[in-house]
Design a protein around this nucleic acid. Sequence first.
DNA 1: GAATGTTAGTTGACTTTAGCAACTTTTTTT
DNA 2: AAAAAAAGTTGCTAAAGTCAACTAACATTC
Lengths: 147, 147
Amino acid sequence: MNAENIRKIREFNRSYTRVLKLTDKYHLDTQYTLLESRLLLEIDRGVNSANQLMLLLHVDKGYLSRTLKKLKSEGLLIEVPNDQDKRIKNLNLTNDGEKVLKMIDQRADTQVETLFSSIPTEELENVIRDMQEIKNAVKKYSHDKEI
Amino acid sequence: MNAENIRKIREFNRSYTRVLKLTDKYHLDTQYTLLESRLLLEIDRGVNSANQLMLLLHVDKGYLSRTLKKLKSEGLLIEVPNDQDKRIKNLNLTNDGEKVLKMIDQRADTQVETLFSSIPTEELENVIRDMQEIKNAVKKYSHDKEI
DNA sequence: GAATGTTAGTTGACTTTAGCAACTTTTTTT
DNA sequence: AAAAAAAGTTGCTAAAGTCAACTAACATTC
């Protein structure tokens, strides 16, 4: 790849890092960290064992264990024994956990809306098309299974 | 903005967060943190007082002071007295500091290249065009001065 | 089928990262 | 000249993250 392309990609990365930081600011208005929010989200989606979460989110298993413990102690998660494999503790959101996830999700929506709503409709449609193209290209040619 | 657009933007954000995490991995192969690398970069660009760096990078000034102290102790930075205002300590990269910055920069290039080089030329050109369009749109309509 | 190795998760000890407030020195304001 | 503000340092603390040792359950292999 030529140097100019690398430069442009890195410039985009820098600029978009700032956007992502702004969209993450809503976490400051909640009592939950980014990791906690992400855990609730992924568990809701069905990624429901500590080991799966560890592999997906690349967090230390010790730290993960403690973080999950905290969420359990707050009543957002419950452990469900896994009958096939008793080493595994399956995780589920409680009703409270679902409520919290919904709240966090709405704030994230609001934050994204705030950041992008000033872009006029047609231009926004282009931006969204661009995003999908980037996402697909990166996904398609990536050897990293998780992207 | 409609819910579908918000969903798409958030999906892109999630997927691109993973890309950025991968491009940040080179920091693990160096002895420098993201903040340290960024400080070297910005000082090289001429942002050369702790206060300016604090405003640009939004870091606590106490933490910044200590981080700069560390870089000075490692011989990557030197303090130059500011004759106009003796409260200010201007910062400059030493030769070693420049070398380290160059090394970090090359690793970042390599990482980006690794991630994107598998995308075929034409598709890559589209991706880069998309990135510029997104960057410009966000910048143009953003009220945040720093984006 | 007992020994060995591996996997899931927990815990203790520790380091790094970060934030806050008090403080010194210098400059600016009134 | 006094008061306020700005630049930077330091002490104290908390949160975030890492690492290794450990238990219990499961898998392998001989």
